[in-house]
Write a protein that binds this DNA or RNA. Structure first.
Lengths: 152, 152
DNA sequence: CCCGATGAGTTGCGGATTGAAACCATTCTG
DNA sequence: CAGAATGGTTTCAATCCGCAACTCATCGGG
């Protein structure tokens, strides 16, 4: 889990002390996390991102640039030919738990019981179990058993 | 974990089959998740949300209404006085893992080593450990060891 | 009972962000 | 080499957002 040094991308954070707010300042718009999702699922090229997300092309240009500037994507030469491709950096790949929890919440709450949806599976085709936050001693955590400790 | 029936809030999903996209259709804007974050940390009233997030008031009005319509917040009479207050529903509280993973990503990647930030702690004041997605047999999961299985 | 202070919005408006579509320069491909 | 695909850029209209001012109801004193 290498630590990428921040490129001071935003001079003015929405809430400089809150890690949640900082993360959302980087990927909390309508499209960035869908681009990341598709990158995790194998998308590499401009056209492929555009096809999968349906995002407008000028906006995609902007998002790819921003995500690259923030250090979540990197551009490198494609293995075949001399075209460029976008790949996730370590920091970008590290958004996996975020995408996963968004996915699992959606599965639980954004589908009617009758509806079907795609599923995330591991190498053996077994569905990924639901994530459950636990404390150091293994007990389940939720809103009621945790609180934010202000930096001082 | 009670299942709230969807209120068919969005007639047109960005990507109807993908749980990630559906979740982002509900809370994937600039402010909704920060409102949820503050609700989890005890905010109840319009003014309190406004003060904590710094969001414009007309936008806050809109977000509170939408989140209520989507079933993530509910309005009920405040215990003291007859004023109304906004509280998280079960579905809203269930976003805890999402907020937590956003927070943990931010802690890892959105702060320079020298910077300090607020921390999430449990009842005993012990920092919440980092979430690690695992498969059914307990092995660590990431982008390389999972893939989306299309619904068919 | 009247005054000022809050709380909870609503309205109007200018500026920023998006989306759709057309256009353009390279690079492949047959 | 012609035509298609890739990876954008430009233009323009529509939408969204932030700010400030305004409203309306309630509340707490004096």
């Amino acid at each position: 889990m290498s630590r990428t040094t921040m490129r001071a991308p935003n001079l003015d954070w929405t809430d400089p002390d809150c890690p949640v707010a900082r993360t959302l300042d980087l990927v909390g718009d309508r499209w960035s996390l869908l681009v990341i999702r598709d990158a995790m699922d194998g998308a590499r090229s401009f056209t492929e991102f555009q096809r999968r997300t349906g995002i407008a092309r000028n906006i995609l240009t902007d998002r790819l640039r921003k995500l690259t500037a923030y250090g979540l994507l990197a551009q490198r030469a494609a293995p075949s030919g001399r075209r460029q491709e976008y790949v996730l950096t370590d920091a970008g790949r590290d958004l996996f738990p975020v995408i996963l929890t968004l996915r699992q919440w959606g599965e639980r709450h954004a589908f009617a019981p009758s509806e079907t949806h795609s599923t995330l599976v591991d190498q053996h085709g077994i569905p990924v179990p639901e994530i459950a936050p636990t404390s150091a001693d293994g007990t389940l955590l939720d809103t009621d058993t945790t609180h934010v400790q202000k930096t001082r």
